Amino acid sequence: MDLFSGTIDTLQKSLDYASVKNQTISSNIANVDTPNYKSKQVVFKDVLNQELSNSIDAKRTHPKHFQFEATNKLPYNIIEQKNTTFNHNGNNVDIDKEMAELAKNQIYYQSLIDRINGKFNSLQTVIRGGK
């Protein structure tokens, strides 16, 4: 039985993504004055496009069935931004951008937590018999 049609699993993976993004942004902020430090960014879109272009391989019971290929990779990558320099010491961390990204990510994370809490509250209501 798949409780909530996989919603909890999707929300968990989204929380993992938000957590990694928060760690990456925090690392950028912590290294704002480190000489030659290059900021890092968590990207999802590039990985999605790459995965969509790959074939999927699975057991085919009929020649007209699609081919599938299962992957267990993370749905995001951490890339280093090497193409810019904002400071005289070779560092490219833009503190204003990082703080804005951190605030945006915190709002996203909190919305995911609220959604999971709503799912568990619904389950708790059912267990209690609607009370």
Rank of each mutant, 00 (worst) to 15 (best):
S27I: 05
T10S: 12
K119W: 04
Y108K: 00
L123C: 07
Q41E: 12
Q50K: 15
D2E: 08
N72R: 14
L3K: 13
V42A: 09
N31Y: 02
G118C: 00
H62I: 07
K119C: 06
N72W: 12
Q81S: 09
A70E: 14
L15F: 07
T71P: 06
D33Y: 00
N92Q: 10
Y37K: 03
A30W: 06
H65Y: 10
K131T: 08
A100N: 12
N22C: 06
V32M: 11
K73W: 10
T24V: 08
N91D: 06
E101N: 09
L123H: 04
I116Y: 14
M1N: 09
N117P: 02
T125C: 07
K119N: 10
L52S: 06
A70F: 10
N91R: 01
K45V: 06
K40E: 02
Y17K: 04
D46T: 12
R115L: 04
E80L: 01
V42Y: 03
L102H: 07
K38S: 00
L48Y: 14
N36W: 02
T85F: 01
A58N: 14
P75L: 07
A100G: 10
L48M: 11
N31Q: 05
T84S: 13
K131N: 11
L3R: 12
I78M: 05
Y17L: 10
T61Y: 15
Q110V: 00
S111M: 06
I113R: 11
N87W: 01
S55A: 09
D96K: 06
N22S: 14
E101A: 03
F68N: 12
S14L: 11
F66H: 14
A30N: 08
L3H: 14
N105H: 01
R115I: 05
D96R: 05
S55H: 11
K64E: 15
I29L: 15
K45T: 11
I113L: 13
L102D: 03
P35W: 03
D33T: 05
T61L: 15
Q106C: 03
L48I: 09
N28E: 02
V93P: 00
N87C: 00
L74T: 05
R115G: 00
I95E: 02
S19H: 10
Q124E: 10
N91W: 01
P63L: 11
K131W: 07
A30D: 06
K104P: 03
F66D: 13
M1R: 04
K40T: 02
S53C: 02
I78Q: 03
Y76P: 04
P63C: 09
F66Y: 15
S53G: 04
M99R: 09
D46M: 04
E98P: 00
K82T: 10
